[in-house]
Every structure is written in C-alpha cells, then in structure tokens.
Design a protein around this nucleic acid. Structure first.
Lengths: 215, 215
DNA sequence: TGGCTGTCCTCTGTCAACAGTTTGCGATCA
DNA sequence: TGATCGCAAACTGTTGACAGAGGACAGCCA
C-alpha cells in the first residue's frame, strides 16, 4: 500500500509551531506576535501566518484590531473560569462515556492507569507526556460527543498547558489525582453515568482547589 | 462625549452577513460557499472572505482542504450532541449565576419572563426576537464566566438557530418551556446553585426530548 | 454500452505589494 | 525640566496575481 502524500498546508504547520512555542514557554504570556516578524523568521508570506494566528484567537492569543496579536495572559480569575468550564464539559463527557464504553476501552485505560501509577512511584510527578496517555482525553474520546471532544482539546487543554508551564503542583497531589482517576474509572467500568459524572466533577473541583491554593 | 468612529473590518462585516445568510436560510445546509463567488458578489477581495469563513469553521461551516467550505449539515446525532454540550455548559452557567446575581438582574429578568408570558398568550409561540430578550443568554451573562458565555454564543446558539429554521415546535411546548424557565428563575432568586443547575439541566433535557421526538 | 483518460475550467493556497494606522523617538516650547 | 507635537519606521488590513489541485465533460477503448 502506498503512503498517502501528506500535504499539510503552511497555515497548519505555522499553527502547530506557534502552539508549541506558546505551550513550551518560548513565547511568553503578554508577548506581542508580529505577523511580519513571524513571516520573515519562517521564510513565508503573511497569509498563512494570519490564518494560523486567527485560529488561535480566544484560545492562546488575543487580537486587538489594528494593533496586533499577543499571547494570552492568565490570571487567577481566568484559571478559575477555565476549571468551571472543564468541570461542566468533562463531567458530561464522563457521563456519556459511562453509557458508551466498550470492554476493550476499559482494558486499555486500565493499563494506562497502571503505567501512571508506576510513573508516580518512580518520579513522584504526574506529567502526561502525550495526549494518548492522557486519561482525560481518553474519556473525552469515549464520550462519543464530537463537540465536547473538540472544545476540550481546542479551548481547555491548550490553556491548561500554559498554566502548567509556570506552576508547580502541591506535593502529594499526584497521588491524590491518581486515586481520583481510579475512582472515576471504577464508575465507568460500572457503567454508572451519575456516578461517573459526580466522580469527574469532584476530581476537577479538587484539582481547582489544589491549583488555586498555590497562587 | 464624542462617538468613537466605528471602523469595522471587512472581515467582521462579511462574518456577520454570512451568519445572517446561514441562520436565515439563504444559504442552505450542505451548500458550498465559494470564496471567489462571495468575493465577486460582495465586491471585495478574497482575503476578508477567507478570514470570515475561517472564523465560522466548526460553528456554521466545515472546510475540506483543497476543496472548499460548505454550510454545516445537521442530523439528529449532531443535534443530540449539541444538546449534551448545552446541558453541560448552561447547567454550570445557572449554578454560577445563582451565586452571582444581583437584585437588579433578578428584577430585569422577571420583567423579561412576564413579557414572554404575554407573547405566548398572544401568539402561542415562543420565539425570542433578540438576544437581549433571551432568557438563556441572560443567564450566560450573569454567570460571570467569560469562557462559557463566549462558547455558548459562538458554538451553541448559532447552530441552534440553524435547526430552528426548519423545524416546528410541538404544540404546548412554548407553555412548558416558559414554566421551566420560571422554575429556573425561582432557584436563581433563591440563590440556590444546586437547584438552579438541576432546574436548568432538566429544562434542556426536556427541550432535547421534545425536539428529537419530532424528527 | 460502460469505464477510463485527457482536457479545460474553476477554485483554493500562497505570495508580494499598497494604503492607512499605530507606535516610538526626537525636537520644540512653556 | 517636563509635557506636547511632529515625524519616521513598522505593522495591520486589504488587494490582485500566480501556481497547483479538484471537478466536469467529452472522447476513446474494450
């Protein structure tokens, strides 16, 4: 079988690069992103740059008409509101997932949780490396609700990554979070929608408290 | 005080016009929107058109790379998922609003509900004319959560309008909805977050059932 | 007759350039 | 000395043009 030729548009390429640059801290919050400069640095014209920056608007950057685009700034208020949104959407995702999950999915996620436990015992941190390993993303996928999956990815998780860049987690929080994940998983395996939503919302409230108490 | 000069960008103008055209039925679901054609018809270049269409991506249109943009098509599945998202976000909005609302806000919304009641007695329909008169939008505003307000507006309400274009409501649904709105309002006035969220979610589930049963 | 192929036209993705606006800096004046 | 004004540079919003890809249609071959 022949490999299909991957013809990413320049705009998508720029989009990915800017997301990486922002979520890795290369571009700092509040920093101005000039279309002309980016175009010069990347060696392309301003069109694709404009397109990529516009796709990021409201997610990772803010635009001021006739002035330009800056990396979003993140205060305690914004962070709290982000957790509210997350609680609402992920709670619903967990509810829907509880109605949908297959035995295969449960087995896979159980393995993931086992690896997470091992990782914590090794390093006492709980940083997910890839989205495939992300428990929350797995539930969003399993919800079968394309809207929720898309919005969580594009509106919530990107912004969360910005915050995680410059904040540490409370000692012991990793173990707590894993225990809460196991509680959610337990309700998913029991196919208990109410319980799954309640467990997920409790988990996210707990993460919110833990995060905000450190500011 | 001098009125600030309103200098809308062409892209915003096009955005508004395309939203109107789609939500009013001038552009039908599935119809292809050609950048070149729109540019010719509106007498401007393709840049602002591209920008406007891109802002609508995922909301009212879908883009296929190298092919173009079509008006989003709306099946029963998509509609159900839209109601799930709505239930999650508006439920949370009602909860937050119950913690935030001022007496002034309550008085204003009580007046709005009174007008809605009158409108139903007159015409037996429950079509909101403007967003200012929209009960749900008022709650989203009152939540004080900018994220939720923005996403409800841009992701949910636009799509709902498409659906309402070509679907009738069950006889008697208007009265039901108003009664449910009053129940939500009652919990808001009592500053009861749990009750407000529960009432809102019950209302949206009820709307979902009523809507889907007609397909 | 049915499917494949080549051609033409239109459209999207990208680029380079122009006009008007914002911003920063230096000069001017009280 | 401090604030204001004017100018120049840089940037955004917009335009028109070009290259390559997709789609329609007619002609060709089995």
């Amino acid at each position: 079988m022949v490999e299909p030729i991957r013809l990413n548009s320049l705009a998508s390429e720029v989009f990915d690069r800017v997301v990486d640059a922002i979520t890795s801290g290369e571009f700092e919050p509040g920093e101005k992103l000039s279309e002309s400069n980016l175009a010069r640095e990347l060696g392309i014209s301003r069109g694709p740059i404009r397109e990529a920056l516009q796709r990021l608007e409201g997610k990772l950057v803010q635009r001021v008409p006739r002035v330009g685009v800056r990396v979003i700034e993140f205060g305690a208020d914004e962070l709290r509101q982000l957790f509210y949104l997350r609680e609402a959407m992920e709670g619903m995702a967990a509810r829907l997932a509880a109605e949908n999950v297959s035995d295969d999915w449960l087995a896979e996620v159980e393995g993931m949780l086992g690896r997470h436990g091992q990782s914590i015992r090794d390093s006492h941190s709980y940083r997910q490396k890839s989205t495939d390993e992300d428990f929350h993303f797995a539930i969003a996928r399993a919800s079968g609700c394309a809207n929720i999956e898309r919005l969580l990815l594009s509106e919530v998780y990107y912004q969360l990554r910005i915050h995680r860049l410059k904040s540490s987690t409370r000692p012991g929080r990793a173990e707590e979070a894993l225990a809460e994940h196991r509680a959610i998983f337990d309700r998913l395996r029991a196919r208990d929608p109410d319980g799954a939503e309640a467990a997920m919302r409790a988990h996210i409230r707990s993460a919110r408290e833990s995060t905000l108490s450190l500011l």
